[in-house]
């Protein structure tokens, strides 16, 4: 599986993401600069956390118009796995690949912590190696992770099993319905505020995030790769 990690000016979790895929998964991975215009040849796309373009205007608002974004939209349309973490989630929202928007955290503070997440839906290509309702521990680090959508959108997310992760216990940022991560209707674009790539190595004390990447790899082996080799 060949993965692209998109790098914007101000991305700062790109190396963690790269490391999780190269060393955690043992798969091929490249950095792709935001000014590139093609993602042809890549099987999966990661949009990492950070502060793209300094979070000017709104987080993710300017990155959404970067040269690489039409290729990200194209990859999403082709059914390739697209994962946006933290600022990557904000960019996916601004790009309209996922519904809703981000507000400042309820308590106006930047929160850096490890939280408990509940796996609400394990029937996705990103979560197949987790158990439904499993509680995992994943780090968060954000000032604008207060997910907002209108009630109609929330009903639709619920009806279609698009809420993938919720905060278990205390909600750190005030997000609607305790949402920590959502997926698109077709199930190949996931946005989440917590950082699975920071929890993908036993040496760093937490491997709960690694199974997310392993789930993507399993999916690739069962689908695209199988079709390619047969």
């Amino acid at each position: 599986m060949k993965t692209a990690v998109i790098v914007f000016p101000g991305s700062n979790c790109d190396q963690d993401m790269y490391y999780a895929i190269r060393d955690g998964l043992g798969e091929e991975v490249d950095y792709v600069w935001h000014a590139e215009t093609s993602l042809d040849g890549y099987d999966a796309v990661m949009i990492p956390g950070g502060f793209s373009y300094g979070d000017y205007l709104r987080s993710g608002a300017i990155a959404r118009f970067a040269g690489i974004m039409p290729a990200v939209v194209k990859a999403a349309g082709e059914g390739k796995p697209v994962l946006g973490v933290c600022n990557g989630f904000q960019i996916l929202l601004e790009a309209g690949l996922l519904p809703g928007a981000m507000l400042k955290n309820r308590d106006l503070k930047f929160i850096c912590d490890t939280v408990r997440l509940k796996v609400e839906n394990n029937k996705t290509l990103f979560t197949s190696l987790y158990k439904k309702d499993e509680i995992i521990r994943i780090p968060i680090a954000h000032g604008e992770g207060n997910y907002f959508c209108d009630d109609k959108t929330l009903r639709s997310l619920n009806d279609h099993g698009q809420i993938i992760f919720t905060y278990d216990g205390e909600n750190p940022n005030g997000s609607k319905a305790n949402i920590a991560g959502i997926i698109n209707r077709t199930g190949n674009v996931l946005g989440m505020m917590p950082h699975p790539e920071r929890a993908a190595d036993a040496l760093l004390g937490n491997e709960d995030g690694l199974r997310l990447f392993q789930s993507i790899l399993n999916h690739w082996r069962e689908t695209a790769h199988a079709a390619y080799t047969s």
Binding site: L57, R58, A61, I62, F65, L93, E94, P99, G100, A101, L103, F148, C149, D150
Partner: peptide, 8 residues
């Protein structure tokens, strides 16, 4: 398109 996010 850019200056406002009409979701919020």
């Amino acid at each position: 398109k850019l200056l406002a996010n009409t979701v919020i």
